[in-house]
Amino acid sequence: MATGGRRGAAAAPLLVAVAALLLGAAGHLYPGEVCPGMDIRNNLTRLHELENCSVIEGHLQILLMFKTRPEDFRDLSFPKLIMITDYLLLFRVYGLESLKDLFPNLTVIRGSRLFFNYALVIFEMVHLKELGLYNLMNITRGSVRIEKNNELCYLATIDWSRILDSVEDNYIVLNKDDNEECGDICPGTAKGKTNCPATVINGQFVERCWTHSHCQKVCPTICKSHGCTAEGLCCHSECLGNCSQPDDPTKCVACRNFYLDGRCVETCPPPYYHFQDWRCVNFSFCQDLHHKCKNSRRQGCHQYVIHNNKCIPECPSGYTMNSSNLLCTPCLGPCPKVCHLLEGEKTIDSVTSAQELRGCTVINGSLIINIRGGNNLAAELEANLGLIEEISGYLKIRRSYALVSLSFFRKLRLIRGETLEIGNYSFYALDNQNLRQLWDWSKHNLTITQGKLFFHYNPKLCLSEIHKMEEVSGTKGRQERNDIALKTNGDQASCENELLKFSYIRTSFDKI
């Protein structure tokens, strides 16, 4: 039985969820670079991206490699990797027998973001014989899940209580170790020597080791999670996991709180800001991140802002960003909400898709409305799209047979046209069989910064309504002859009103 693990408890099935942008060198404390989270699957090609990484700022997932063999891993080693800020997950990587050479110096898994409450997941690794993470000293947050690894031993010899604050939620089941077939031998045991430290858990006094050649490092209890030197002297209180010299914040392997210019500090002093819960960055760093993602459509890219001495992905609820200094300031009234469309555009074809934009005031991208039916549609669209004030790209209304009016965009005031449909149009209306009105132009103002209007096959939309939009939106004169079809717009509506004058002759039985 794995020490510190839980057996036999019912657990939810383990679901495996399925960018080499360097964020800056980590400095003297770390020998390499800070790398983003990685999802490495199918083959070993991307694994080489770990070569210079000291910190993975995010998670590391290595999974679904069915053609790899043990010899493929023999020359692979990433000794610079010290810390993973989120979680480490391995799933069905064939041929991998140990992690001792792959990650010989991995010391800390912070667990800032977890995989279903777990910071370390080893699942269905069919050839893994031992973990071998002999320098792993601290899992700051989260638990361990090690399950269905039929060859995995050296679990009962690990004292997880020396690595985690609590072992109650560890789930370590259905491994070879369960069948008591392992016969784990710690260093020196074969020669009758006791080389590794022994600890007591559940009444068992057991030597602690990761492999037959690597003991588990056990520091004096007084050192807590700070770690200790090879001689057993406690590291500085700002260290986490390990250090090369005692009581020196510049000799830590990793930091308990924050890293700044080669030393570990309790908090980031001005003019620095907390970033990702582990390091200090200056304003320029946060500003660069903001600008890199301002026009990016890459998933996970955030326009970072500053709030409460932190550089964070977005302002919290009730705050909006001051564009001059990136500071989050309290909103006066309802907060603006910028919604970034991942692929640059979004099609609204149902109430469900409209709900995804609920509360958005600025759309960074283009909207395509293609709704053919739905219950209580006008009210639903207004509830979900009615706060949109600005669209950076274009607005396209296409084959939306259920629409009679666009009044559900009740606050839309600006279409920038930074991206144009077919390279020309910022407003595009095609084949809307029941569209009769755009907006009530006596109450609604709309500016279209650039781009043209396109109207074709809107049989109940009168040309007068379209011409009014040209005047109000500032697009009059931009359109070419064929942009607004004269014969297919309003051709099934009563669009022309003329005053009919009647004269009559009164007659009676005795007068003409």
Rank of each mutant, 00 (worst) to 15 (best):
T320C: 14
C235G: 01
H302K: 01
P316R: 02
C264V: 00
R141A: 03
K100I: 05
H274A: 09
S317K: 04
C228G: 02
C153E: 03
L131F: 10
I40N: 01
N175G: 10
I158P: 09
E51I: 10
N43H: 07
I82T: 10
V265L: 08
N43T: 07
D277C: 02
S237V: 04
C311L: 01
M125D: 05
H212K: 15
L233S: 12
G111N: 00
S237I: 09
P70Q: 09
N43S: 06
P79R: 05
Q61N: 05
T107F: 05
F258N: 02
R279G: 14
C328I: 00
I146R: 01
Y134D: 14
Y118N: 03
E97R: 12
V144P: 02
S213L: 11
L81F: 01
D169N: 11
G262Q: 09
Y171P: 05
R162I: 05
N202M: 12
P104N: 00
C315H: 02
F66K: 09
C331M: 02
E130G: 05
M38Y: 07
P36H: 03
M38V: 04
I56G: 00
R145E: 02
P269I: 07
L60P: 00
L64T: 09
H127T: 13
R208S: 15
V218F: 13
H59W: 05
F275Y: 09
Y30T: 07
E314I: 03
N309H: 13
E181R: 04
N170A: 10
S244Q: 13
L164Y: 03
D86A: 02
L174F: 05
S77G: 07
S317H: 02
R145Y: 10
G132A: 11
C255Y: 01
L102F: 12
V55M: 10
I62T: 01
C255S: 00
Y259H: 11
C239H: 00
G111F: 01
V55Y: 04
L289H: 07
I146K: 00
N257D: 03
D177T: 12
C335N: 08
F116T: 06
P313S: 08
L155I: 11
V253D: 15
L240M: 04
V126I: 07
K251N: 06
T140V: 12
E130S: 08
K224Q: 06
S324L: 07
R256D: 04
F283D: 05
I158S: 05
E49A: 07
D277N: 15
H59F: 04
L240T: 14
Q216N: 03
C264W: 01
L260A: 07
E180D: 03
G183N: 04
D159K: 06
H127L: 05
E33I: 12
N42K: 06
T320G: 05
R41Q: 09
Q299D: 08
I201R: 05
D165F: 14
T267L: 04
W278V: 03
R46T: 05
D72S: 07
K129G: 04
N322E: 00
C209R: 09
L240G: 08
M83F: 11
S296Y: 15
V144S: 04
G111W: 01
N195Y: 08
C280G: 00
T250V: 07
A230T: 04
S237N: 14
N295G: 13
V34N: 04
D178A: 14
Q287K: 11
V200P: 09
S54L: 03
K80S: 08
L120Q: 00
C255A: 01
K176Y: 15
N52R: 06
N42A: 09
R279N: 04
P271A: 03
P313N: 06
N242H: 08
C234W: 01
P70C: 06
S112R: 12
A119G: 05
T194R: 07
N295D: 10
K67N: 06
M83P: 00
E97L: 05
D247A: 07
D177G: 15
W210R: 06
K224R: 05
P197M: 11
L96R: 01
D101K: 06
C209L: 01
C252D: 00
S317M: 10
F66H: 15
I146N: 01
E71A: 11
N138D: 13
N149Y: 00
E180T: 07
H212V: 05
F78M: 08
F103R: 00
T329E: 01
K217F: 14
D288T: 05
L50M: 13
G203Q: 07
G142T: 00
M125L: 04
W160S: 01
L133M: 04
H307I: 04
W160K: 02
K148I: 01
V55I: 13
T194V: 12
G32Q: 15
R279S: 06
L128Y: 01
H59N: 07
L44G: 05
F66N: 02
G37A: 15
I84M: 01
I82F: 09
D39M: 11
P79V: 03
M38D: 04
Q299Y: 03
H59P: 11
A156P: 12
T267F: 15
L99I: 08
S213C: 12
C268E: 00
P336S: 07
T107C: 05
D165C: 14
S143N: 09
L152I: 08
H236P: 03
P336M: 08
L164K: 12
L136C: 05
D184T: 05
N105E: 03
L233G: 12
C215M: 15
C196L: 13
G111H: 02
S225A: 10
E130N: 09
E49Y: 06
C215I: 05
V206K: 10
M137W: 12
L76Q: 11
V144F: 02
M137C: 13
V253E: 09
H236T: 02
